[in-house]
Simulated assay, not measured.
Amino acid sequence: MKIFTAAALVTALLLTGCASVDMASKEDSAKAKAFATPTAGNAGLYIYRNSLVGKALKKDIFVDGQCVGESGPDVFFRTEVAGGKVHKLDTESEFSANSIDLMTEAGKNYFVRQYIKVGVFVGGAGLEQMTEEEGKADVLKLDMAKSGHCAGKP
């Protein structure tokens, strides 16, 4: 009976509550939502989270081993990476990091969605590349979080 109660509590926490992260200014968020062409030789990278589950969870995001930030519900990050190469994106998950490789082309913007999935003890996270059309539509509904703070390592 205790196991059932604990499992119900964990499930309730995953589906309710709200984790908060430090947010960028409204001006910075609006500027990022203009989807400007990245600086010469670079690609723009938008990583966002709009999952319905796991609102109480914060999950770290890394690009090439460098902290992008700690995500919360309904936020996005914008950064630039070198064009013409493959970049490794990692997100914190339940037992180990989940990763994807993303080949970028200079001058383009890329969109990666972080999603929360149910885990054994706590929710995990995954990453998936989205089309530019889907990504822009999703990011327009979100607010930008401050970059640079992660709780762990990739």
Rank of each mutant, 00 (worst) to 15 (best):
K2G: 14
I3Q: 13
I3E: 08
F4S: 11
T5E: 15
A8M: 13
A8H: 08
A8G: 12
T11Q: 09
A12D: 11
S20C: 10
S20R: 05
V21F: 01
D22R: 11
D22V: 11
D22M: 15
D22N: 15
M23S: 02
M23V: 09
D28A: 10
D28R: 12
S29F: 04
A30S: 08
A30Q: 15
K31E: 15
K31A: 15
A32R: 03
K33L: 04
A34Q: 15
A34W: 01
F35W: 07
A36R: 04
N42F: 09
A43H: 04
G44K: 03
Y48N: 07
Y48I: 13
R49Y: 03
N50I: 06
S51V: 05
L52K: 06
L52T: 06
V53F: 12
V53R: 11
A56T: 10
A56Y: 08
L57V: 11
D60P: 00
I61P: 01
I61S: 03
F62I: 00
F62Q: 00
C67W: 02
G69F: 02
E70M: 10
S71C: 02
P73T: 06
P73Y: 00
V75A: 02
F77L: 10
T79I: 11
V81R: 13
K85N: 12
V86Q: 12
T91N: 03
S93V: 04
E94T: 05
S96T: 09
S96E: 12
S99Y: 02
D101F: 02
L102P: 03
L102R: 04
M103S: 15
T104K: 12
T104S: 07
G107R: 13
G107S: 07
K108H: 14
K108D: 09
Y110I: 01
F111V: 05
F111D: 13
V112H: 08
R113A: 10
Q114W: 03
I116E: 06
I116H: 06
K117A: 13
V118G: 04
V122F: 04
G124T: 03
G126C: 09
G126W: 04
L127A: 08
E128F: 04
E128S: 11
E128C: 06
Q129S: 13
M130G: 02
T131D: 05
T131S: 15
E132R: 05
E133R: 10
K136G: 03
A137L: 04
V139N: 08
L140F: 00
L142T: 12
K146P: 02
S147Y: 00
S147F: 00
H149V: 08
C150T: 03
G152Q: 07
